[in-house]
Amino acid sequence: MVKNALQAQLLKAGLIDNKQAKKSSKQAQHAKKTGQDTQAALKAEIEKAKQEKLAKDNELNQAKQQLLEEKTLKANIIQMIKQHQITATDGDMTYQFIDENKIKKLYVNQQVYNAVVSGSLAIAKLEQNYAFIPQALAEKIDARMQGYIIGIQKQAEDQSTDEEDPYAAYVIPDDLMW
């Protein structure tokens, strides 16, 4: 009647009686038939799968949020450039600058040319065109996202010269026209 050795030893020692042994063996058989032993493992596996799915969903949500923030930032930058661009720039002077390893040429008037050379205006990329914007705004935009500001003229405050240079007294202007 007793199915395992432990129950037999407990019966011989007098710690349990036949009725308790039968009851425990029936409980073990019932648990085996209903799968209660495997249910705990199954629940653990399901919980692990839920945690993995939750982590993956959080990662995807963060990536989507980052893309949305980047798209919003780009739209804000374009809006700022359109709002603050200098519109009366057409003229007969040419201002040349480098964009994506290509020399670009814009025709501007004398006032805009002087402002760009002196550093009070900067060139910003606006879709397929270029716009002139104030230097302070250009620095803010460049700090937020690279790639929109093309020409920021840094004003040379400290021009170091070699003391033995015979041409040190002759300063070459930045806006030299050839």
Rank of each mutant, 00 (worst) to 15 (best):
L73C: 06
I133A: 11
S24C: 14
K64H: 13
K22V: 15
I98M: 08
L67F: 09
I86M: 06
T38S: 08
L137Y: 09
V117A: 14
L137G: 08
G35N: 06
Q65A: 15
A49P: 01
L15K: 02
N58C: 01
A55R: 02
Q51D: 03
Q111M: 09
Q29E: 10
I133K: 11
G91P: 01
K33L: 14
A124L: 00
A49E: 03
K74D: 06
Q83V: 09
V112F: 02
K19H: 06
E45T: 11
K32E: 04
I16H: 09
V116N: 04
S24P: 03
A40D: 03
I16A: 14
L106N: 00
Y95Q: 11
L42H: 08
D37V: 11
L60F: 10
D37Y: 10
L126F: 03
S118E: 06
A138C: 07
K102W: 02
Q51F: 01
P134C: 00
A21S: 12
G91M: 06
A41V: 11
Q36T: 11
I103H: 02
H84A: 07
E70W: 02
M80S: 11
L73D: 04
I103T: 13
A21N: 13
T94P: 12
K43D: 10
I86D: 05
A115G: 01
V117N: 07
M93V: 15
I16Q: 10
Q110G: 12
E127H: 13
N58A: 13
A41K: 02
Q83M: 12
I98S: 06
K32A: 12
A63K: 15
S24D: 09
G91S: 05
G35K: 04
V112H: 03
A55H: 04
I86K: 08
H84T: 02
K102L: 00
K82L: 08
G35H: 07
D99A: 10
E69K: 11
L121G: 01
L42P: 05
Q96T: 06
K105L: 14
T89V: 11
Y95C: 13
Q39I: 00
T34I: 07
T94D: 12
K105C: 12
K105D: 03
I16G: 11
